[in-house]
């Protein structure tokens, strides 16, 4: 923590009267640390160790397999469609919800959260019931010759469903916290709705948006349950990377699923890295800003004269 010195001292002195004995503190840290490392960190290391257990050459051979390559391509394609779709939705939903008052808002919020509380498997099933051969639109789609289930469109739809709330959930509180003062100010200066959005709203929520995008992307690329139900597991055609991991797991080479899984673990690491960076950056920006503002004014209240234009009466 980069607290200014004064604040740090104050914190520690107030802690003294309300602190656990040293041995309690350090055993709690010990247990928590051990738990976190064994239960959360070792599994990550294990992925890479297992992936390289048969050496670099083998590792890259697994990854270069045409079926793996096609799984990677499919996963990228699915993410490239579902993430932007949910970004557009998230921006629209958060604009309506954060900037306006209307009836039924809390119901709308509940609906937006729904996909979080539905088992991915059940969501996959829903799409089968909609677009499957015996589904609601099955005969129609069959007539038109469009295949959704056991094909890429189904995978995309299921992925959009399970990642549906991510961007909106990040943006709604971010926009609510900003309020609409900046937008109103832009409008008093003559800005149109789109100008206001592009120049004022979007820059002020860009980090929240990026945060939502990386979480949405991580889930989109890693989704297993819903995609598994609708994909049909056609090797080289409808296998995404996580499905490819499962397929390799059921084959003879124990290192192969880990090699493919290591890509997804890497994705998780990158996601966490960006996430940590964003959090650190916001914290630092706030801190630096406060410090700069302090430097100019000096001690608040003491040097206020310096802060004033010359023609104010002395």
């Amino acid at each position: 923590m980069n607290l200014p010195k004064k604040q740090r001292e104050r914190t520690s002195s107030s802690q003294r009267s309300t602190q656990e004995p040293g041995w309690v503190k350090w055993s709690l840290i010990g247990i928590a640390g051990l738990f976190a490392v064994v239960f959360l960190f070792l599994p990550l290391i294990n992925v890479f160790v297992q992936a390289f257990s048969k050496g670099w050459v083998h590792y890259f051979k697994v990854l270069a397999d045409p079926d793996t390559i096609s799984a990677i391509k499919l996963t990228l394609l699915v993410a490239a469609i579902s993430v932007p779709a949910n970004v557009i939705f998230g921006v629209a939903a958060s604009w309506a919800i954060a900037k306006f008052e209307f009836r039924g808002k809390s119901l709308l919020l509940t609906f937006i959260d729904l996909p979080f509380s539905i088992s991915p498997v059940v969501s996959g099933l829903m799409f089968i019931l909609l677009f499957g051969v015996n589904g609601l639109f099955g005969p129609l789609l069959d007539h038109l010759g469009i295949k959704i289930i056991f094909a890429v469109p189904g995978i995309v739809l299921a992925t959009i469903f399970v990642t549906f709330p991510f961007v909106a959930r990040e943006l709604i509180p971010a926009m609510q916290a900003e309020g609409s003062d900046q937008e109103q100010a832009a409008m008093t200066m003559g800005a149109s709705g789109w100008q206001t959005f592009w120049y004022v709203t979007l820059p002020s929520i860009k980090w929240g948006l990026l945060y939502g995008v990386i979480l949405c992307n991580a889930r989109a690329m890693g989704e297993f349950g819903a995609v598994s139900v609708v994909s049909g597991h056609i090797t080289g055609l409808t296998d995404t990377v996580p499905l490819r991991v499962e397929k390799l797991y059921n084959e003879f080479d124990p290192a192969a699923p880990f090699a493919v899984a290591s890509l997804l673990a890497l994705l998780a690491l990158v996601t966490l890295g960006i996430k940590t960076y964003l959090e650190w950056k916001t914290e630092r920006d706030e801190h630096q800003g406060q410090q700069l503002a302090r430097e100019v004014v000096g001690e608040p209240g003491k040097n206020f004269a310096r802060d004033l234009p010359a023609h104010s009466p002395k």
Binding site: D181, Q182, Q184, A185, Y199, V200, P203, S204, K206
Partner: peptide
């Protein structure tokens, strides 16, 4: 505006 509503990103 009361709390100035300056554009934070500018």
């Amino acid at each position: 505006f009361q709390n100035y509503a300056l554009f934070k990103s500018m």
